[in-house]
Amino acid sequence: MIDCIIIDDEQHAIDLLKEHIDQVHFLRLVGTTTDPVRGLTMITDLRPRLIFLDVQMPNLTGIEILKLIGKDTYIIMTTAYKEYALEGFEHAVVDYLLKPIAFIRFLKAVNRLWTFHNSTQLKNDQDNYVFVKTEQKGKLLKIDSRRITYIEGLGNYVVIQMDDHRKITAYLKLKELAEHLSRMGFVRIHKSFIISLSHLTAIEGNMVRILNETKPIVIGEAYKKEFFELVNARLLSS
């Protein structure tokens, strides 16, 4: 399912797009507005994956909105003026629909987007999961690495802490796991711990805080230099 919003200063244009969206099973309309400034707030609040964006609007044009929002959002431009198409495509929009928008043309645009979205999602899934051997003989468990908060090594096995508080025991060496997960945003900070940088919330002296965990994890002396080099590379200072 792709959540979408419509930003268009003409209500009748919004109504037509709503009719089209209602006929497409993978689109879910979460908001509409005729005010482009309000549209910017909606983008922040609702975080839609797709925006149907009019070009010609008072106070703020669609092209100006394009320049203000992140590049992770799909954009389909809508307008009665085809001469704006080139500038829209320069901003990597998905498609450009001329008003009045026929359903068959609308369907062609969103179907192409759906195909691209699914292929991208599949690639992301392939890049972010691992299989581990569990305590049960012959059983392999698929784990989404994005949901791992930290991993504790206990000799010949590890305990993987998930963001929903599940603990998964797997028969692996921490060193082997650290090498494999390093490309996925994990870093070893202690002989017994690997942490997820995306779940790291604070650094307090020689300890780190992990999301949803009450106890901090100590940074081992042997790993301190490499860890703080990584932190300093992202440190903002005046």
Rank of each mutant, 00 (worst) to 15 (best):
L172H: 15
I160E: 13
G185I: 06
I168N: 09
L174S: 03
F186M: 13
S182G: 10
N156G: 11
L172F: 14
V187D: 13
E179L: 12
Y157H: 11
I189R: 03
L177Q: 01
K191G: 02
Y171A: 02
E176C: 04
A170L: 04
L154C: 09
E152S: 13
G155N: 14
R183H: 13
Q161T: 06
N156K: 11
Y171L: 15
T169A: 04
F186A: 14
L154N: 04
D164A: 10
G155S: 07
F193A: 00
N156E: 12
M184Q: 13
V187Y: 12
K173D: 04
K167R: 14
L181S: 04
D164G: 10
I194H: 12
H165D: 14
M162S: 03
K167A: 04
F193E: 02
S192I: 09
H180C: 05
V158E: 02
L174N: 01
I160D: 05
G155R: 09
V187T: 06
Y157L: 12
D163C: 02
L177M: 09
E152G: 12
H180S: 08
T169N: 01
E152L: 12
G155I: 10
S182A: 14
N156Y: 10
R183S: 14
E152R: 12
I189E: 02
A170E: 11
I168S: 07
K191C: 00
I160H: 14
I189H: 05
K175T: 13
H165G: 00
H165F: 14
I160R: 11
G153K: 05
R166C: 01
H180Q: 13
L177S: 07
L154K: 09
F193Y: 14
Y171T: 07
H165S: 13
A170C: 11
E179Q: 11
K167V: 08
L154V: 06
Q161P: 03
M162Y: 06
G185H: 15
K173N: 13
D163V: 00
E152C: 10
H180M: 08
I189G: 01
H190S: 10
E179S: 13
V159Q: 06
S182E: 15
D164M: 11
L172D: 14
A170H: 12
H190E: 01
V158C: 12
F193K: 03
E176M: 06
G153H: 06
E179Y: 09
G155K: 14
K175P: 03
L172M: 15
I194K: 06
L172V: 11
E176D: 12
F186P: 15
R166D: 09
R188D: 07
E176W: 00
E176K: 05
K167I: 06
Y157P: 08
R188A: 09
K191F: 03
D164V: 02
K175S: 15
H190F: 04
H180Y: 03
G185M: 10
Q161R: 05
N156W: 07
D163E: 09
M162T: 09
I151E: 03
H180W: 02
V159G: 00
G153L: 06
V187N: 12
H180N: 07
K173C: 02
I151A: 05
D163M: 01
G153A: 00
G185P: 08
I194Q: 03
L177P: 00
I160N: 07
L181D: 05
